[in-house]
Write a protein that binds this DNA or RNA. Structure first.
Length: 197
DNA sequence: CCCGTGATTTAT
DNA sequence: TAAATCACGGGG
């Protein structure tokens, strides 16, 4: 498990560092594990696509303003949850959205959580899909990924992915954000079939 | 392409 | 209080 200092950096750097690491969810002594293959960086008060744009601080997004290495889980569209990893320093509201995982452990349980998905490739290939597969909801909003037990990050043996294996492009679903919509703040593992869309 | 779905935010 | 919005997913 990485120390808190791993998370305490700018969100673009953390986004790339999270690729290849494992997101681990423990439920009733069972491990659900996914390799992080797609992420997006959200750059805080200046970022028109971010929930904290222009210094917005509300009950929902409070976790982003806190210390790095915690989860920010929010509910949207009346039915979906999405999970972020908080980056940066306290009072600097930056974070990384987890957009896709490659299932590694606990595939049966993930399937049970996602009845609509038939193939492994449909289990975690989207930010709300992976939350459903790993049973991540608002109960885990604010959870500490460094010291916690039920939701953590584990560093894989490879540690950091070489830059040549990382692809970059615009973030998804932020068309409302004008000039910020096109900035290359989405990162994924090149040629990995488990990324979204 | 379109629409479900309701918490959360923002405007009156 | 009321209206608008939405870092999505599934089905044509």
């Amino acid at each position: 498990m990485p120390p808190r200092t791993f998370f305490q950096r700018d969100p673009e750097s953390l986004a790339k560092a999270l690729l290849g690491q494992h997101l681990v969810r423990v439920i009733a002594n069972q491990r659900l594990v996914g390799r992080i293959v797609e992420v997006e960086a959200y750059l805080g008060v200046k970022d028109k696509a971010a929930h904290t744009y222009a210094g917005r601080r509300t009950p929902r997004n409070e976790a982003i303003w806190g210390p790095a290495g915690h989860a920010y889980v929010y509910f949207t569209y009346g039915m979906h949850h999405c999970m972020n990893v908080v980056a940066g320093d306290v009072d600097v509201p930056v974070a990384v959205l987890i957009r896709a995982l490659e299932p590694v452990e606990g595939l049966d349980a993930m399937h049970a959580h996602r009845l609509k998905a038939s193939r492994p490739i449909d289990l975690c290939s989207g930010p709300a899909k992976l939350c459903q597969a790993m049973s991540i909801d608002k109960n885990l909003n604010g959870a500490d990924l460094v010291s916690g037990l039920s939701l953590t990050i584990e560093q894989t043996r490879a540690r950091t992915l070489p830059a040549r294996m990382i692809a970059t492009g615009p973030r998804i679903g932020v068309d409302y954000a004008d000039d910020w919509a096109q900035k290359p703040l989405r990162f994924w593992v090149k040629d990995n079939p488990h990324v979204s869309r």
